[in-house]
Amino acid sequence: MRKSMASNRLQPDVGFNFWMRWSNFQRRYAPYIFISPFFVLFLVFGLYPSLFSLYMSFQSWTPSDGWGRWKFVGLENYTFTFTDPMFWRSFWNTLWLGVFSGVPQHLIAIPLAFVIHMVLSRFKTFVTAVYFLPYITSSVAIALIFNTLFATHNGVINLVIAQLNTWPLLGALLPDQNINWFTSANIKYALAVVVVWQFTGWNTLLYLSAIQAIPKDLYEAAAVDGASRWQQFRYITLPLLRPMMFFAVSLTIIGNMQLFEQPFVLLNGGASTATPGGQTVTMYMYRTAFEWLEMGTAASIAWILFVFIGILTYLNNLAFGRAARGGD
């Protein structure tokens, strides 16, 4: 009672008191409220599902049984996945694809960015945009188009090979029959082509922005000392690109290890059964969860993949990271 009297004396007007408190409140909490949309969305769609999947990886749950009808099984899902030949096959497929669709991206993108930067001046933006276009095209549309290109009987790629076959020297090297690109043995190559085609432009853009940040006087000084274009590339551009390489390679590792849409659509979803050679870990996870309804096992696959991506990123950090932190 006395307290309220006292505060009344200090803030005689009730309305004034309210606005005062509001002002204090919003001064203190406004920043949190303004950044809350991110955290709310992250909690609901990022953190909660992640933690739930971690929890789920220790349970056995057939989702069609209904919410809450899961059973604790301890590490059974993990031991099952680690001893599952189908998981390992999809794992090696993913690793193979990761290397053969990842490395070429960078081997093409770095020289390409250098050439675009050095040679093109007027059309630089336009050319970069053209290379970037596949990246912003929907993966599904891309896979559908490549599906048509790789078609066994009327696909453009096989028609070109058949045409080249009639040439004297090349003919000996090429197969006589149409290549079926959608068999287990061949699908990997087709997939690698699609992925390289789609993501090289993105990496080119990354490298181009890094090259543009390299001070011009370094090149000028080198030119004065008589360095050739190749030497400039080898001794100036490449070393200074290492931080960007770290970043770009990290993104490629994370992206390629989770390759899903391209193989899923190229293999027509269900047809993946018949082509185990093109099945990636994420596709196998999807099948386990939504076709075989083994949510717990699928969650364990997700976490094993997560740990593996973590290890690869760490190795990449060892290779490029020192430069990225500026301690070369």
Partner: peptide, 12 residues
């Protein structure tokens, strides 16, 4: 023909 079911080549 080594064509998978439910593909464009199948319809073709």
């Amino acid at each position: 023909a080594r064509i998978g079911s439910w593909t464009n080549e199948w319809y073709d």
